[in-house]
């Protein structure tokens, strides 16, 4: 291999790795943060990976139990709390170390230190503690997840139905000002959501659709219809007109042709298109804050939780909860994503 080739290859892999790191590092940060206990979060330097368990030492002095936690950075047992109240220990273990124990278990484990010197124990951390806490402090989280799914579902349905029809018209029919219309479709997306949210709220209240997911989806669809029309028109253009004409000649109406020929052929591209609608609806919290504050979506709930608790590991847990369905959705449609760039193979 020539030097030039080696250089080229090296550069290529450096770039790939950089991109990978840039993409994966925040994701890793969130996932690992969501698994930390409170104690780990405030340690400096913070460990790279979350701990699975804690080593603790209990001593008995002055009629009180003294709880030490092993610090592997400095290799010593750090005194954390001393009290005679078992309840305090239980709460400390739970809140700071994400260890779930009953008073009886604590009592029986600790009592040996009264006579036989220090007691050493290894307690398993409850890894999902933050997630459980997230659901318990935000008492309507499951409702919010459902809301998010409904809002995203409506957004996909509305923007794909209307957008693909507009896209089809642009692709297949000639009319005056077609090119200008096509370009102006994208203008709609230039308005920030916040700018149109207030007038939208007025309209939604008039229609009685505020605080409903359908109303929220209508607002999300505004920008998405335009984008869907833009993308689908290029997908439809990629479908040979003769395929539709053949259908018409062989006995189908225009509408039957669209359903039986055009739609199945455009389907992969439209699935890919639905990703934009999904992500737009799923990730938004600002519009939801204005339009549906009393009936929050998941991302709005997380946004609020962030302000409420102020603890990083809880927010991270919320973020992970938000990411997972989006990942699943993207994974399902991954085979279709290439179609977005008009890569329609017929």
């Amino acid at each position: 291999m020539s030097t030039k080739k080696i250089m080229a290859k090296t550069t290529f892999y450096i770039i790939i790795v950089t991109v990978l790191i840039a993409v994966l590092l925040p994701f890793f940060f969130f996932v690992s943060s969501s698994l930390y206990s409170s104690y780990e979060v405030y340690q400096f330097p913070r460990s790279f990976l979350p701990k699975m368990s804690f080593d603790i030492m209990v001593t008995w002095e002055d009629d009180m139990y003294q709880l030490h936690v092993y610090d592997d950075e400095d290799d010593f047992y750090e005194l954390m709390i001393y009290t005679s109240n078992i309840d305090d220990f239980r709460i400390f273990l739970k809140r700071e170390l994400s260890i779930q124990l009953t008073n009886e278990e604590i009592e029986s484990d600790f009592s040996a230190s009264k006579t036989g010197g220090p007691v050493y124990e290894t307690y398993k951390k409850d890894l999902l503690y933050n997630f459980k806490t997230f659901f318990s402090i935000t008492n309507n989280a499951d409702k919010a997840i459902l809301n998010s799914v409904i809002a995203a579902g409506w957004t996909i349905l509305i923007s794909l139905t209307l957008g693909s029809m507009a896209g089809y018209a642009v692709a297949r029919y000639g009319f005056a000002g077609k090119n200008k219309l096509n370009l102006s479709l994208l203008l709609v997306r230039m308005f920030p959501a916040v700018a149109i949210a207030i007038p939208m709220l007025v309209y939604l209240i008039k229609m009685g659709l505020n605080n409903t997911m359908f109303g929220l989806a209508i607002v999300y669809s505004v920008g998405n219809i335009a984008l869907t029309a833009w993308i689908t028109s290029s997908i439809f253009q990629g479908i040979n007109v003769e395929l539709e004409e053949a259908s018409v000649v062989f006995g189908a109406s225009r509408f039957q042709t669209f359903l039986k020929i055009t739609l199945p052929l455009a389907f992969p591209g439209m699935v890919a298109c639905s990703m934009y609608a999904f992500l737009g609806a799923w990730n938004d919290s600002i519009t939801a804050l204005i339009l549906s504050s009393n009936n929050p979506t998941l991302s709005l709930l997380i946004y609020k939780a962030l302000g409420m608790s102020g603890t990083i590991q809880l927010s991270a847990a919320g973020a992970v909860i938000l990411i997972i369905p989006a990942l699943v959705f993207t994974f399902i449609i991954k085979n279709y994503i290439n179609q977005l760039w008009g890569d329609v193979k017929l």
Binding site: N240, E242, L243, E245, A246, S247, V248, V249, F250, G251, A252, S253, K260, I261, P264, L265, L346
Partner: peptide
Amino acid sequence: PKNRGVSMIFQSYAVWPHMTVYQNIAY
């Protein structure tokens, strides 16, 4: 077109790619 009693063979064949040959003919 469907009421005219004509059938057509196209330059690009216009055979529908998402159907089997049988479905194409039976359409």
